[in-house]
């Protein structure tokens, strides 16, 4: 059953007709030709389809497109500006934080989300329980980054460089204190 929806993707208004069964991931890749979000597992287990959905990192393979009519989506393709890489993308390049690259767009979008969440003071399960109401920005050390990035799998095992890349981006942003 076809439905017309509107999405704002990487800064552009897009109208697309989708079947009610179409996921956000398939709408992006198959209907709009935006192929940076990858279809790894298609079951919410690998994170390669991660984008920023209404400002937050989200898996797109389990989200129905029709339910996200009107959404603002930023994919890895839309993170940079004017030919400049986003600082997280640059950190991935600088730290050689990839091998085959398939999981990388999802890793980068997830890392951007992690930095936002930490800046808002969101805890992770490894965050030490602080004083009551303590919502200072979270400090992103190795353990925190590994936990917060655990939803993005890398079958090449590039984690050893991904964690330092995220740490460097966090430090540059002031979240690495």
């Amino acid at each position: 059953m076809e439905t017309e929806i509107k999405l704002r993707v990487d800064g552009q208004e897009r109208e697309v007709t989708v079947d009610t069964r179409t996921t956000v991931l398939d709408a992006l890749r198959e209907r709009l030709g935006i192929t940076s979000p990858k279809k790894g597992c298609d079951h919410g287990q690998c994170g390669s389809c991660t984008v920023l959905l209404d400002g937050r990192r989200a898996t797109t393979c389990l989200a129905l497109a029709v339910a996200h009519d009107g959404a603002e989506i930023v994919t890895a393709e839309g993170l940079g500006t004017d030919g400049e890489l986003h600082p997280v993308q640059q950190a991935f390049v600088d730290h050689d934080a990839l091998q085959c690259g398939y999981c990388t767009p999802g890793q980068v979008c997830s890392a951007v989300g992690v930095l936002r969440e930490a800046a808002q003071g969101w805890p992770s399960v490894v965050t030490e329980v602080g004083a009551e109401g303590d919502i200072a920005p979270a400090r992103l050390d190795h353990e925190e980054i590994a936990e917060r990035m655990s939803g993005n799998l890398c079958r090449c095992g590039a984690y050893v460089n991904i964690v330092p890349a995220v740490a460097a981006a966090a430090e540059a942003e002031g979240a690495g204190r």
Binding site: G44, G47, T50, L53, R56, R57, A58, T59, L62, A63, S110, G113, V114, E117, P123, S124, V125, V129, R148, M149, S150, G151, N152
Partner: peptide, 16 residues
């Protein structure tokens, strides 16, 4: 409760 929630799924799934 906060710890239980943060033990589940991944950051990008918990956002949904």
């Amino acid at each position: 409760l906060s710890q239980a929630l943060l033990s589940g799924a991944s950051g990008q799934l918990r956002n949904l």
